[in-house]
Design a protein around this nucleic acid. Sequence first.
RNA 1: GGAGAGGUGGCCGAGUGGUUUAAGGCGAUGGUCUUGAAAACCAUUGUACGGUUCUCCGUACCGCAGGUUAGAAUCCUGUCCUCUCCGCCA
Length: 474
Amino acid sequence: MLDIALIRSKPDWVKEQIEKLNDEGALARIDAIVDLDARRRETRTRIETAQAARNKLNRAMGALRGNKRMTDGEKANRAQLAAAALGAEDYEQASRLMAGAEPATPDKHAEMKAAFDELIRELRIMGDEIGEGFRRIEAIEAELKENMLWLPNLPHESAPVFESEDDNIPGPMQGSLREFDFEPKPHWELGPALDIIDFERGVKLSGSRYYTLKGWGARLQRALISFFLDAARENGYTEVYVPNIVHGEMLYGAAQFPKFQDTVFSLADEEKYLIPTAEVGIANLHRGEILEEACLPLQYVAHSPCYRSEKASAGRDVRGIKRVHQFEKVEMFKFATPETSYTELETMTRQAEAICAALDIPYRRLEIVTGDLGFSATKKYDIEMWSPGCGEWLEVSSCSNTEAFQARRAMLRYYPSGTRKTRYLHTLNGSGLATPRVMIAIMENNQQADGSIMIPEALRPYLGGAKRIEAIKN
RNA sequence: GGAGAGGUGGCCGAGUGGUUUAAGGCGAUGGUCUUGAAAACCAUUGUACGGUUCUCCGUACCGCAGGUUAGAAUCCUGUCCUCUCCGCCA
């Protein structure tokens, strides 16, 4: 979520920022938000003032009824006078009467019960009006929140302003392209040929976009996961294992919901969901807590399966394992102060690149332009590996700073050193890395003329020292 | 899955409808005292939102959500979670 105070104070500036994004409809929400916010504050101030008066009167009521120094006649008379004052909406006068501060005439004939009933009747009228007011505030705030939840994050000033993903700015390729003296095959041919990816049986089990890995395929994936986790740990990230099934609230916290609700799988008999990334769990780890600045930045890494329904991508990338409903990913995540978050983003991105370099696969960094930033990032870098079989660049990592966008939703805060004033943390996330696409890149780059695949040196310790996935002899 | 017990501030813990502030303790922070420290004593103590503007004031929050009441931590209903025992299970 954005800072409502920022929208309130600089609505036109916020609109200018949103115009840089490729997000139809977000702009119109700003005017609605400004209006709802003004109504919310006006109503809240008015109703809370009335509530303050009522609280005071209710306490005075108890004090009057229980007062041991007053005669019943005086109490009855005071109740009568107070009820009249309430009828005239003079709450101060009524309070003073009940507290015994104003003179009253003890009246032996006044009926205690009748007098108090009258007073209670006036208080009930007041209470009904206030109740109605709070219901109105709730409705306004629900609408305001709904609008806020649909509003994307604003781009950082350093994000290049262009329209779409076609304008993303590629950096120079790192590493060297393989030179093949044969036509390199795509992984959807290599996998079945080596009997390490079985598409048919995956489809038999679960339908399209599911697959099974077998033998070296399954082992290669497991090796990659271990390698990625070790690399992150060496960079100072604490390894965590998080639930793969979470409350919907966590998905709001990580800013998947409400906008991307239909990309997430939900459970049939519970209000819980399969995570689309381990980021969901990590981002909410410190939900509702207030951290001390001295422990920042907090760095976590987690491996998890990622479940994505991919409804919006029907028909795209239908061959192979580039876009599937279930895959494995190692996710890096940082909680940082606003002062350090952008240098932390650079560090994290370089760490993801270093993993690509260690695997000896040609890769490049893509600077994401404002029109392709997505919903929650202020600045983003993608890292792509070249796949000679598919003939395309594969996104294997995406590193983002969300500033306080997730922090406001999940209540992630810290006390700056020496103060007790809370501040929102900045959160950063980056894949490090995602397995199916890295496997594609390894298979397609390292394929040999005889059909075998060379295993990157960095992975060999995880595979019993094996150097190569041998072709099947016919 | 069955039975029982419970959920109150950073922590422990009191509080069964009201005479305006969730008692008390621990911890933490600041101060006094001291060469320094400890001890003792004094003071302070959460979060969000709104108003005010640098200091306060107000509202809400006692797991969560409803309800009863002029008034709820307290009574009622639902729900979630934790613990203990039993059953099942890797």
